[in-house]
Amino acid sequence: MVPLSERPRITALVPLARRLSVGLLTAVAAVSLTFFALRLAAGDPVASLLSQGLTTPEQAEAMRRSLGYDLPLFRQYLRFLANFARGDLGVSLYSGQSVTAIIGSQVSSTVQLAGLSLAVALPLGIFLGSISSWKTRPAAQRAATTLSGLATSLPVATTGVISLLIVSLLARRQVSGVQLWLPALVLGYAAAGPFARAVHAGLESSLNSPFILAAKARGLRRGRRMYWHALRPALPAAIALIALEAAFLFTGTVVTETVFSRPGLGRTLVRSILQADFPVAQGIVALAALIYVGSQILADGLGWVLDPRLRDTG
């Protein structure tokens, strides 16, 4: 037991607070990047509508004024940031719907898919990672290593189409593909790779550490109990990965939703890019950046809470 006086006090929170402020700055910068990338490279978004003959010059002029595109770039940027902070992401150039409303209507489908994928990925990853450290069963070990390697290296588009192919051949009819479980399995398998790697690395290091030798010396047999001994220190790393996986899952849903023709944010993003609907694309990428930065901070925090060893180093 560490005496109470020697336990980390509130000063231990300083690195966490610093991490938070750096994260916040990064998030603002990333959101700004989405603004400048689109406005500097693509120029005037209304011009593309005009060139496609979707508006008349008069309508385009009115649209420019109402969207604020006639202001100097820096004023537009400040306006964009202020609106963003209030949750106003502008309106779609096509439907005229607010981007926030579009995101709101699509987010539940994406969250459902990402959540279920995570529920598949975590146990599968821990399972594959543990088996791949199973020295006494080389065949199982090799199979698990191969499977987790494939999970990280194969593109979701390929595994998705292969799974659709298999299912449609088994079912002997065209599969509609809107079901939830197949995309979740495909995405979950892809996301299981990093978990497996983290668990494997943790197990390798704890199996070689003195406390396992001590446990063996005390007469703890191989098998479940010793496994739990070695596995437990490896788990915080894997659980902290959950937060990092949020970003991976978000990118993964872009492809998975397209493969399985599921509605959601990812498919909306692809459509908005193809239609040059900049406010929508910008809103979704900025949201993704926010989720990613937020999840990295969350991962650090989770690791800090779950693994006392991380607190000492700060």
């Binding site: 910068a29 990333a30 990047l33 978000f250 692809v270 040059a276 990428v285 993704a288 930065v293």
Partner: peptide, 25 residues
């Protein structure tokens, strides 16, 4: 360093999609 940290704050594939959005498919 700072620029690369900001760019790394957006996952690689999404960053690529942002650029495709900017330049047009």
């Amino acid at each position: 360093n700072w620029l690369s940290n900001v760019l790394l704050a957006i996952p690689g594939l999404l960053l690529a999609m942002l650029f495709v959005a900017a330049w047009g498919p």
